[in-house]
Design a protein around this nucleic acid. Structure first.
Lengths: 249, 249
DNA sequence: CTCCTTCACTTGTCATGACATGTTACGTTG
DNA sequence: CAACGTAACATGTCATGACAAGTGAAGGAG
């Protein structure tokens, strides 16, 4: 860790987020291996020259994200990753992953404003001319790209989302907690397809590799369609897991 | 909130957990209503006679639990409660298709009796030596093969099923209507794969075509695992649809 | 009247210090 | 040798204090 890790140069992001991301990077790149002990709080205090409260906030975030776990009196350890998603409940990808014990981060590929058109318009119940936001994100797990998410939202919401920390926060949680938009049902369609060249390049697989393609239309609790997504998951690295019940009707 | 809320009498649980639970109770019983502002941190400090760090730890827990959300510079607010139940429909393939007006039938490829072994045994909660029935069926939609279903059932049930008209009747409906076995949950795992030669020949696609591979473990209403299946769907001809609801944290 | 500054209030970040509690290893004591 | 006690070290809890940053309303300047 070099010697001092100069963090105190005035910076736009809080200290604890910087430390958190540095530690996250070290976990993901294997500097700290699963089930190994992390440096203790006092060691991190000395290494980063910060107070204990700052170190604890960084570690707490990582713990809640599932990357590490603590044992009272012993120390802090790196978690093992698990990669599957349970959608018997409607969850965002990151939301599900963090609950399962690991966290992903997203790389925003592009944000555009488009007209709703004939495909997205009817899904979101907008007219063809009305503006929407197209958000393309690459989602990573263990430094590996695992899916490309293409989200279509009404422009009003898309503009707000553009200012958020989409790299680490789940869209669903932003919509619910920050914007007060309660999410209700979602309709899913799942199919298998082959990666074309563009997708292959993004997902770092070969063209012709198997992909899971998921179309998801999410509604608010009052039934308004809010988010229409196309998700392309790497078939070799991901399993969609869910638990459902037999319906009455 | 009475006046002092005597918390400081020595107690087994930490202060912040007590405050958290008191606040949680007030949110749940309607003392603090959804979208209303909570008392500010300084008010809670005075009310509970604790330090700010303690109040913030309680509020942070509630926020992460989704009960409240904070707005920097404004205050802390109660979240809207989220929808409860979630039910994705559990249907057999033919059951779903016939409801949509398609003509389906199944061709039994093979029925064998095997030992449960290490893969199927744990799923059906049988010992490795116990006998199971392996049923392979090709499923057709409008005379096109659309999937290969490999089902594993306890031999007692498999023997009965072998006598049924599996070409035209859905297994799930036989189990429920004829055998009185109520079906409850199912766990699914969905992934994308490429067709190998054997699968390609059966499904009349080319080797390397995209397939949807679904692992499904179906339980009876009392939780007994009943049917473990591997389903291989042609990616070009099938979409898996479902409708789910957002769950409670 | 409109625009802007100021100020009070909110949550966010960070430091320092203290004591509690759980774990482990290394002693000493029987 | 076995059992116990203690010290070192880990994380957990809590207090006090300070400043940063976002919000909104009141009040002054144009």
């Amino acid at each position: 860790m070099s010697q001092t890790d100069n963090i105190h140069a005035l910076s736009p992001t809080p200290l604890y987020t910087q430390i958190r991301e540095i530690l996250r990077q070290r976990i993901l790149d294997g500097t700290y291996l699963p089930h190994q002990q992390m440096p203790s709080e006092s060691e991190l205090i000395k290494a980063f020259r910060v107070s204990r409260i700052t170190v604890r906030q960084a570690l707490g975030d990582l713990q809640r994200a599932g990357l590490i776990f603590k044992i009272h009196g012993k120390g802090t350890y790196v978690s093992k990753p698990k990669a599957f998603q349970n959608i018997g409940q409607l969850q965002g990808f990151g939301e599900a992953m963090s609950r399962m014990g690991y966290e992903t981060f997203s790389q925003v590929v592009s944000i555009k404003t488009l007209a709703a058109g004939k495909t997205v318009g009817p899904k979101l119940k907008l007219k063809e001319r009305e503006p929407i936001t197209e958000l393309r994100r690459l989602r990573y797990l263990n430094r590996e790209p695992i899916s490309l998410d293409v989200s279509y939202l009404p422009k009003t919401i898309g503009d707000r989302l553009a200012k958020e920390d989409l790299a680490h926060r789940d869209i669903f949680l932003i919509l619910e907690n920050d914007y007060g938009l309660g999410l209700g049902q979602a309709e899913l369609q799942i199919e298998a397809m082959l990666a074309d060249e563009a997708l292959a390049r993004l997902l770092k697989v070969e063209a012709g590799a198997p992909l899971l393609r998921i179309e998801r239309l999410t509604f608010t609790t009052d039934g308004t369609p809010l988010d229409y997504e196309h998700l392309y998951y790497r078939g070799d690295a991901f399993q969609y897991r869910l638990r459902i019940e037999r319906g009455q009707i």
